[in-house]
Simulated assay, not measured.
Amino acid sequence: MANPGLTPLVQAEAPGEVLLLRQAQDLGFPVGETWVVELWEEFARLNNLAERIGRLFQGVFGVRIDEDRLLLAAEEAERAVRESYLLPERAETFLEALGGRGPFLVRRAGEGVYRPAQTPKEALFALKRLWAEAFRVEALLERYPTLFPPSLPVLVQEVPTLPPPEGGLLEDPFLSLDLSQALGQRVIAYTWEGVLLRVESSSAG
């Protein structure tokens, strides 16, 4: 049975890359063990983040952007997320589901930037860092005028070893071709040590 907010890929119902990865797994491609985390909305509501962060950014976005206040507000917003907490039972089920496994890559579905984690506890910390980084200045300006980030699923993926800090996942042209033919749409497949970890629709790039 899936844990609330933490779903094995085979049971996940999210669209986009989650769907592509699940289809690839169903077709027998070597998809790495993947869990889909959908806890951002509950986490934000539990910690009253919309109101707290909204107050931080009052007066920042007017006729012109107050850059000094933006920098300060972004820093405080990141801190607010990092210092907030998941429900204890959510954290416990997260750690139990990943227990005895690792290492992991933690990233938002549809995005290539990942956070490495050697243990389940590090993966939990990486999850919160990803949420906090949504309030970096660059991320805020990219989605302006929307202040709060969309509720994208986060993927926790077990890997044989952690990739180097630079280089990351590798595009596999042969696997991309095979997977595109199997799915009936053009996709790009990214692997590490023979494990399929990311599928990107070619229309997105």
Results as ranks from 00 to 15, higher is better:
E111I: 08
V195Y: 02
E76Q: 14
T161S: 11
G59Y: 15
E83W: 00
D178M: 12
E133Y: 14
L71R: 14
L70Y: 14
T7P: 02
R101G: 12
A12S: 08
S203C: 08
D26N: 12
P164V: 03
N47H: 11
I53Y: 09
A24C: 10
T146H: 12
A132P: 00
V159D: 02
L179M: 10
E142P: 00
F57C: 11
L177H: 13
A109Q: 06
A109T: 08
R64W: 14
F43N: 08
G102W: 08
E96S: 09
L130A: 05
E89S: 10
G54L: 04
S201L: 15
S180F: 03
G184K: 12
E78V: 04
E193R: 13
G16T: 04
I53Q: 10
F29W: 13
L9P: 00
A134R: 15
V195A: 08
W40R: 04
E158V: 01
N3F: 08
L9K: 01
V156E: 12
G100C: 14
P4M: 03
P160E: 06
A97V: 14
L127Y: 15
A14L: 09
D172L: 02
E89R: 10
L9Y: 01
T191D: 03
Q11I: 01
Y114S: 15
L147Y: 03
P8H: 03
G28L: 10
R186Q: 15
E158Y: 01
V37Q: 13
A14M: 10
S84M: 00
V10P: 02
A12K: 05
T161K: 10
L130H: 04
E67V: 13
A77C: 00
S202T: 12
P30G: 10
P153S: 01
A77I: 01
T7C: 07
E96F: 05
L49R: 10
V60S: 14
G112Q: 13
W192H: 15
R79I: 03
A189K: 08
V106D: 11
V154H: 07
E38R: 06
L71W: 08
L86C: 00
L170V: 15
A80W: 00
W35F: 14
L197E: 11
E142F: 14
Q118M: 12
Q23H: 06
L56V: 06
R107T: 05
W40P: 02
G16R: 04
L127M: 13
L56F: 05
F174S: 11
W131P: 04
A132G: 02
T146D: 11
R64V: 14
L49A: 09
E158M: 02
R55S: 15
Y190C: 03
E75L: 10
P165I: 05
A97E: 15
E38S: 06
R129F: 11
L71M: 09
W40Y: 05
R186H: 13
Q181G: 02
L27K: 15
A80D: 02
